[in-house]
Amino acid sequence: MDLNSDLGESFGAWRMGDDAAMLDIVTSANVACGFHAGDPAGILDTLRAAAARGVAIGAHVAYPDLAGFGRRNMDPSSRELVADVIYQIGALQGLAAAAGTRVTYVKPHGALYNTIARDERQAADVIAALRALDPGLVLMGLAGSPLLDWARAGGLRVVAEAFADRAYTPDGALVSRREAGAVLHDPDLVAERMLDLVRTGEITAIDGSRVRLQADSICVHGDSPGAVAMARAVRQRLESSGVSLAPFAGMPVS
């Protein structure tokens, strides 16, 4: 199993999360590309720290929305969205090369992530961007979402992701952050929930029902309160139960 987190999101004097601590825990890092968060110097620092620890690098591409942290819905034209995604990946590839590492996958962020999980037009634009720049890049997306099938049909390899610190609806979508209980904060609860997912292939939805969820990677958001404690609890719980953790870049992906 892979364990990932969204990192490189600090911006100038505005500090977001604890990248150094998270990089000692996770196996893959989704690094901001400057559109929703992150500045070049900070992103480079995060990439160097990840390279030193052997953590795999993904481009955390987003809508151009610094003020809203990439969490506001947008409807860019296909021309704009394809170019925006290519631009962000290209920038991160350059910084990664300077840090002695490379970008192996792409994980969209925030509103873009949630939109392309089910919006075929915007999903096709993101897929087209990867195919135009580097078809060898793996696309990480929401487990159980149509996006994964669309990407496979477009010739991309995909990795299905589950969220440790987010609640799920009965149909396998993420509960909106506007709703109570959408974000989970108890490290022990989160860790047990992820062990249950790995063992059973199911997760308990917000209404108590069980949802089938086949995932290759688990995410703990780096900006969540107590993120480091949650990520550490998840890792310790999985490893103590015999689950090995490694970057999915070194595993077979679909």
Rank of each mutant, 00 (worst) to 15 (best):
1 M>A: 14
8 G>F: 07
11 F>L: 15
13 A>Q: 13
16 M>P: 06
16 M>Q: 13
17 G>T: 12
18 D>V: 13
19 D>N: 13
20 A>Q: 13
21 A>M: 09
22 M>W: 07
25 I>L: 15
26 V>L: 07
27 T>V: 09
31 V>N: 07
32 A>I: 01
34 G>R: 10
34 G>T: 06
36 H>D: 02
41 A>N: 07
44 L>G: 06
46 T>Y: 04
47 L>S: 03
51 A>L: 08
55 V>M: 11
58 G>P: 03
60 H>S: 03
61 V>C: 01
61 V>A: 00
61 V>N: 00
62 A>K: 00
65 D>E: 12
67 A>H: 14
68 G>N: 12
73 N>Y: 10
75 D>I: 05
83 A>P: 02
96 A>R: 10
98 A>Q: 15
99 A>E: 06
106 V>N: 01
107 K>D: 08
108 P>Y: 00
110 G>M: 06
111 A>L: 03
112 L>E: 04
116 I>A: 01
118 R>H: 12
120 E>G: 08
121 R>Q: 15
122 Q>I: 04
123 A>D: 04
128 A>M: 05
128 A>Y: 07
129 A>V: 08
130 L>N: 01
130 L>K: 00
131 R>L: 15
133 L>C: 06
137 L>W: 03
137 L>K: 01
139 L>W: 04
140 M>W: 00
142 L>G: 01
145 S>F: 02
146 P>L: 12
150 W>R: 15
152 R>H: 10
153 A>D: 15
156 L>K: 03
159 V>C: 14
160 A>N: 00
162 A>R: 00
162 A>H: 01
162 A>E: 02
163 F>R: 04
164 A>I: 04
164 A>P: 05
168 Y>R: 12
168 Y>I: 11
174 L>W: 10
174 L>I: 08
175 V>M: 12
177 R>H: 12
178 R>N: 09
181 G>S: 07
181 G>T: 09
187 P>F: 13
187 P>I: 10
189 L>N: 05
189 L>K: 10
190 V>Q: 06
194 M>K: 03
197 L>Q: 07
197 L>E: 03
199 R>I: 02
202 E>D: 04
203 I>H: 02
212 R>E: 13
212 R>A: 15
213 L>Y: 03
217 S>F: 00
217 S>L: 00
218 I>P: 01
218 I>N: 01
218 I>A: 02
219 C>F: 02
219 C>D: 05
219 C>Y: 01
220 V>R: 02
222 G>F: 05
222 G>A: 11
223 D>M: 02
223 D>T: 10
226 G>Y: 11
228 V>E: 09
230 M>Y: 06
234 V>Y: 06
234 V>C: 13
236 Q>V: 11
243 V>C: 05
244 S>D: 13
252 P>A: 15
